[in-house]
Structures are given as structure tokens and as C-alpha cells.
Write a protein that binds this DNA or RNA. Structure first.
Length: 697
RNA sequence: GGCCCCAUCGUCUAGCCUGGUCCAGGACACCAGGUUCUCAUCCUGGUAACAGGGGUUCGAAUCCCCUUGGGGUCACCA
């Protein structure tokens, strides 16, 4: 019924080879200025429609072709309960024909159904739901997503990018964080073919449903896969490839500290654990309810003394001498698998063929390879990409927020004796003990950092996708920018959208050197994207952003289709770098006419100072009142014409009038074009502010 | 400290695999001009790099070795 499907490892190797044979043709864009490339103008890919759950042709689980005679029954069946060694069927076949099944009449040969080919390349992104998505994680996800698409297109198969939630750390994981991560990814336009279901409203108001399980490899939360891990754990223990260890965590900590203090490398000593006979191991492990002793324990892999070589698609061959890998923990005392164990089991059972991850994982790879060998799994193809750093060279991390906030608080405390940790706690409502801990660097709570940031008016560095979103960055600018961190399409091309990345992404163009996150360049990309956006799109997206992140502004302009909102957008779009920046420029619209504070410096320079040729700004301002009163239809064009005519009569440059007006209307010397500023305020407000300025300033 | 990885302008990078077309190209930042009612854009021009030392070769940014420098990692976190 099935043609013999090529083994996973064969196809994977073929895919790997095609990396090398696929050289990019010389770019036609060399020696031209940077060119934007993409299927649309900076349009994030939003095809969130999940693969129809129709299923593909047979897809053997990785390792299914392996003939490991030692494999116990646990390893002889895949996650569907189907025997290994024969290609499993997706979806599983029906048990029997439905009752009353009547064969259809013979209508001649069935029309040939184009058979959907199974994916040859399966990538995954596996975040731990402990907060919002880190920008580095976003890059990893982007590359995995792009690679799945590029390979699917090359091979004519459906794309297979899996999102898996690694929630095995019970203390730190949360469901809301998992949801947040899904949203962060979706917002960036990174959609997963397989993984948790996520519903959202897209940028254009469209309803998106992301996720699914067409290959039946879920669930995608590791906490829901414990039975699977335990099955493999027991297999390994029974084969004596893994063993229970009964040492207390504190004992080992002490030994570790002692070793480091002697400047020696700590190695786990397995002699005591290995001295226990298998029967006794099993008895001590077994829960009391099942007649065992139920002793608290962890399960460790018995690492054989073989050297391990990792074949990496970016770094090449990386070798580890025998003895470099310790007998590491597979299952924690709480019964949850460690990251190392869960990742190996899941990648195998989910059929993941290519693992793209950051270089900080490189030293984990020999552990994973050792485990794969013990389990008789084939190793996926690895590609480790460079780390993303701060401009100072340190690894970009969520802790950077804590660092910044802590520094701000400490300088404030030093400078001003009235400011004490106790006083800060009272003002901010923070728990004094937690705050003290935070200041003593015992915790890096993001909540505390943010509270301190607000208290001391310092902007914390954006490190999570949500931070950039709140700061008014565009997803298309972010994906474009982070794609360039460690990858490049070659030549002088550097402006492109996600569709372009999905088309051109190639593991062999991933660099080896760590990349510094240059916020200035990101800002430049964002400015470019925002100022070249179609005005109608800007109106809509800026309004959407304001609803989410600038409620006071959205409250004043509830309707994104209203002419006054359009007028505001027209005034602000060409001169903003982010949505936040745009919102800041509209601040003058949000204060009451009698609450405008006039910047003393501006008043001095623009209103009071007497120019020998033109007199004082205040005088000009008084003179322009009647001009403004005289404008019948109060809109930018007519206002501009009136002011220009007034300026002409005085033989003045329009700027001589604009600046005093600006100060009167907004209190400062900076605002959108003066005609737009007046029009947005309206005639009554404008005149009220001018009169108040003439009287009080 | 052990182990692992890396090395082109201040930053992201192209070029490296397949040595000559490179006294090294683009972009961001910076500097100098220009446009402009402020601000921001925008336009023009400019400064700026193959870490150092050995090899191999007629020829090295490109291949090899060493040194130096940077980073990562050493958990019952992921």
C-alpha cells in the first residue's frame, strides 16, 4: 500500500548535501544601493491558516529504520502505538468500516488525487514559557520558520514548522506566558504549522487561527507528555543505560562548590549509584503505592566513555573528548524530565529533522547525541547560530532590564538622602523584602525593574518582542533587522520582508560570529518602514497601536476613519520613527487649553527676544490673531495660505510667524507643521491658547 | 579554571568554501555641506576595517599553524 518511504536519515542527508550544492548565484544587486526585496512592501507573512488536517503520506518516525536489537518494547512502538520498523500510517487507519458500509458504484477509475508529499524537513521552535518572547528567541523562530518554508518550496512538500512549549520547569512556567509567546510570534508573522492552537485578530482585522497537528505528533506542551518520557526512562533504566541516583541536591552542591574552590572541574561520581544492583534500583525507585520504597531520586544517563563528534551545519565538525560529558540528569526528583531529555525524546517523536538554535546550546549537543545513541535514535541535523549581544559585548538578556533599573535606583539613593529602599518600596507598592533582594542582585524580577523604571523615569532597554511592540516598532522592521543578525542573503541586499526570507533562507549563509544588537540601525529600519507606509495603512495601524498602548490618545480619537485622525496621521507620519514617537508628537492635543505649560527657554528665545528687523515674537503673535480669526474653513491649506499672505505683507519668512505660534499652541518649539498644528487644535482652542500665552507667558 | 566556538570599518555585514577582477563593497552611526516654518525626513560628499606573527603560493582578506583577543558553557533552568 505504501511505497517504501526513504529513511529519515537518508533524506536528511540528501537535504544536508543540497545545502552545499546550492550556491547563490552572484547577486545582480552588487554595487547598487540597498534594494528592497519582497513580495509586497514590508508585508508580514500572515498566512496563518493551518495545514488542513488531511494528513500526508506515510512519514516514518526518525529512527524507525534503525535495527537496534537491544531496543525494548518501549522503543518498538511510536507515539501512535504503531509498531516501529514499518512505516506508520498518518492518520491512523480506522478500526473497521462503518456500519452499513456500501461500496460505491463503479464509476470508472477514480480521479487521481494529487498525493500530498510528506515534509522532508521538520523544524521546531521550543521556547520555555517563563515570560515574553526574547528577541533572540524571535530570531531563532524566524530562521526555523523560514527554513521550513524554503525547504518545503524546494522539495514541493508542505512546510512543517513545529511550535513546542517546554514547560518542564514547574516553578517558572505559566500558561499565560505560553499564550503571550504565541502572540509575540504571530504578531511578527511567524506562524507555526504544528503546535498549540492560537486565535487572534490580524493586523488587517482578519481572524487568524494558527496551529494544528496534521501529523499527529502532539501534544505540544511537554507537561502533557510525561507518560512518554517515563516510558523511555524505564527502558533506559532497565537496560542499565540510565540509573537512579539518590544523592541529595545539597550534597552535590557542596561537592561542586568544594571542587570549584580548589579550581578543579567538578565531575559527578557515579560509583555509589552504580554499585546498586538493578533489582534494588527498581525497587527503590518504585512508588510505595506499587509496592516499592518510593525513595526520592533523579535518573541519570550512564554516559559511555566515547568521544563525541557533532556535525554542525554552521560550525562544521565539533569534537568532545571522552569524559567531557557527565552522567547528567534525565528526570528530576519532581518526576519532570530535564530539558536535555525532553528535547531529545520530543525531537525524535515529532520527527524533527533540523535543529536550528543559538550557539549557547552548542555544549549541550554532545549530551543530546549521547542520549540519542543510548536510545538508538538518529541525530537530527544541527545548525548553531551566533549569539545576539548588547553593544558592550555581553549576552543580550532579560537581566539587562534589571541591571538598568538597579543602577538607576542606586544612583538615586546615593544622590538623594531622602530616597531610601524603604521609601521606594512604599511609593511603588513593592514588597520591601523583594526590593531589597533585587537591589542586592539576588533576583532580576522584571516587574520590579519596570516599577523602578517608572519611578525614576528611566527607559529600560527593550529585550522582549513585546517591549518593541509597545515602543511602537513594526513587526516587519523587526524581522528584517533580526534576520540580518547572523544571516545575510548575500550581496548588498538588506531590506526585505519575511516572504523573501522564507524564499531565500539557507543554513549555509548563517555566520559564525556573534552579532551586536545595534538599536540605532533597528530604529533606522523602523523609520524607513513607517514613513514609506501607505497613508491609509498608517492610519489603521497607528490607531490599532494607540488602542493597545496609548489609550488616552485613542480616547480622544476613537474613530480611525474620522477626518481629524487622518489629518493627525498626515501631520505625524513623515516625521516619526516609531508609533510611540508619533504618539509623543500629539501630546499637545491631550492637554486642556488652560493647562499648556510654556517652556521658559522657548518663551525667552521666540517670544520675548527682540529681533531688530522684525520686532518681538509676541508682537507678531498678537498680530496673527486676527488672521487666524479670519480663516473661514479651518483646514491646513487655508490656514497656510492665510499665514503666508500675512507673512508676505510683513515681508517675512513664514518661520518667523510659525515659531511664536508653536510656542503659544504647544508650549514648545517643536510640533508638526504649523498649519496642521492649528487645524488639529481647531480655531477655538488655537485662539484660546494664543490669548492665554499672550497674557501669561 | 576545564571544555567549546569565534575573529573584515564604531556596529550589522558582502567578499572567504572555489587564492588574482579588493590599495576591500553596502547599510547604520559619525563628520561636513545642501533642502526645509520647528522637529524629523530627504539629497550630496567624507572619515573608517582584513587582530598580530609565521608559513604555503608567482600571488593571501581568502588555505594552514601559532599567539593574542572576544564570547559561550560547565544545575534536579531551559
Amino acid at each position: 500500500m505504501h511505497s517504501p518511504a526513504p529513511s529519515r536519515s537518508t533524506s536528511a542527508i540528501a537535504a544536508a548535501k543540497s545545502f552545499t550544492s546550492r550556491r547563490l548565484s552572484r547577486s545582480p544587486f552588487t554595487r547598487t544601493s540597498a534594494t528592497f526585496l519582497g513580495s509586497g512592501r514590508f508585508r508580514p507573512e500572515s498566512s496563518g491558516t493551518p495545514q488542513s488536517a488531511g494528513g500526508w503520506a506515510a512519514m516514518p518516525a526518525r529512527g524507525a529504520n534503525q535495527t537496534d536489537a537491544a531496543a525494548s518494547t518501549a522503543a518498538t512502538h511510536n507515539t501512535l502505538g504503531q509498531p516501529r520498523g514499518t512505516p506508520p500510517v498518518y492518520p491512523p487507519p480506522r478500526e473497521s468500516k462503518p456500519e452499513g458500509f456500501v461500496p460505491p458504484p463503479n464509476l470508472g477509475p477514480m480521479p487521481t488525487q494529487p498525493e500530498l508529499k510528506r515534509p522532508q524537513v521538520v523544524t521546531r521552535f521550543a521556547p520555555s514559557p517563563t515570560g515574553h518572547l526574547h528577541i533572540g528567541g524571535a530570531r531563532t523562530a524566524l530562521f526555523c520558520w523560514a527554513y521550513s518554508r524554503a525547504e518545503a518550496a524546494r522539495q514541493g512538500t508542505p512546510p512543517a514548522f513545529v511550535l513546542r512549549i517546554e514547560d518542564t520547569d514547574q516553578a517558572r512556567s505559566s500558561e499565560s506566558a505560553a499564550k503571550g509567546m504565541c502572540e509575540d510570534l504571530a504578531w511578527l508573522g511567524i506562524t507555526w504549522d504544528e503546535g498549540p492552537r492560537h486565535e487572534r485578530t490580524g493586523d488587517a482585522g482578519d481572524h487568524q487561527v494558527i496551529g494544528g497537528d496534521p501529523r499527529h505528533v502532539g501534544p505540544f506542551f511537554q507537561a502533557q507528555r510525561l507518560h512518554l518520557y517515563n516510558k523511555y526512562i524505564m527502558q533506559l533504566v532497565e537496560q542499565e543505560k540510565a540509573f537512579p541516583a539518590f544523592e541529595k541536591a545539597e550534597e552535590l552542591d557542596a561537592k561542586r562548590r568544594e571542587a570549584t574552590s580548589r579550581k578543579q572541574t567538578y565531575h559527578y561520581d557515579n560509583t555509589a549509584a552504580l554499585a546498586i544492583p538493578l533489582v534494588e534500583r527498581l525497587h527503590r525507585m518504585k512508588p510505595v503505592s506499587e509496592g516499592g520504597k518510593g525513595e526520592p531520586h533523579v535518573v541519570r544517563l550512564r554516559v559511555t566513555g566515547e568521544p563525541i563528534t557533532v556535525q554542525d551545519q554552521v560550525l562544521g565538525e565539533v569534537s568532545y573528548a571522552a569524559g567531557e560529558v557527565d552522567d547528567f540528569v534525565l528526570r528530576k526528583a519532581d518526576g519532570f524530565p530535564t530539558y536535555h531529555f525532553a528535547v531529545v525524546i520530543d525531537d525524535e517523536t515529532m520527527g524533527v529533522t533540523h535543529v536550528l538554535r543559538a550557539q549557547e546550546h552548542l555544549n549541550n549537543t554532545p549530551k543530546h547525541v549521547a542520549l540519542q545513541q543510548a536510545l538508538g535514535f538518529a541525530s537530527p541535523i544541527y545548525a548553531h547560530m551566533p549569539i545576539i549581544c548588547n553593544m558592550d559585548g555581553s549576552k543580550m538578556s532579560k537581566r539587562d532590564k534589571a541591571k538598568t533599573a538597579r543602577a538607576a535606583a542606586k544612583t538615586a539613593i546615593q544622590k538623594d538622602p531622602a530616597i531610601s529602599p524603604g521609601a521606594i518600596a512604599q511609593e511603588t507598592g513593592l514588597d520591601p523584602a523583594a526590593l531589597a533582594d533585587f537591589l542586592a542582585q539576588n533576583n532580576d524580577s522584571i516587574e520590579i525593574a519596570e516599577a523602578l523604571g517608572r519611578r525614576f523615569g528611566v527607559t529600560l532597554p527593550e529585550v522582549e518582542v513585546e517591549d518593541f511592540r509597545a515602543a511602537g516598532y513594526l513587526p516587519e522592521a523587526i524581522t528584517n533587522f533580526i534576520a540580518l543578525l547572523g544571516w545575510s542573503p548575500g550581496g548588498d541586499i538588506e531590506k526585505f520582508d519575511t516572504a523573501f526570507i522564507a524564499e531565500r533562507f539557507d543554513v549555509h549563509r548563517i555566520g559564525k560570529t556573534s552579532a551586536k544588537f545595534d538599536r540605532m540601525k533597528l530604529l533606522s529600519f523602523n523609520t524607513d518602514a513607517i514613513t514609506t507606509m501607505a497613508p491609509a495603512e498608517f492610519n489603521r495601524r497607528f490607531h490599532q497601536w494607540a488602542r493597545d498602548y496609548a489609550p488616552p490618545l485613542a480616547a480622544v480619537f476613537p474613530d480611525s476613519a474620522a477626518p481629524r485622525w487622518e489629518m493627525l496621521c498626515r501631520a505625524v507620519q513623515p516625521r516619526c520613527k516609531t508609533f510611540k514617537d508619533a504618539a509623543d508628537q500629539t501630546a499637545f492635543l491631550l492637554v486642556a487649553d488652560d493647562q499648556v505649560t510654556f517652556d521658559p527657554k522657548a518663551v525667552e528665545k521666540v517670544l520675548k527676544k527682540i529681533d531688530p528687523a522684525t520686532g518681538s515674537g509676541a508682537a507678531l503673535l498678537a498680530g496673527v490673531v486676527s488672521v487666524i480669526e479670519g480663516v473661514v474653513e479651518f483646514k491646513p491649506e487655508t490656514i497656510h495660505a492665510a499665514i503666508e499672505a500675512f507673512a508676505a505683507t510683513k515681508n517675512l519668512n513664514i518661520g518667523k510667524i510659525a515659531q511664536p505660534l508653536r510656542v503659544a499652541l504647544t508650549g514648545s518649539t517643536v510640533s508638526p507643521p504649523i498649519d496642521a498644528t492649528l487645524a488639529l487644535l481647531g480655531k477655538a482652542s488655537s485662539l484660546a491658547r494664543i490669548h492665554r500665552c499672550l497674557q501669561t507667558a
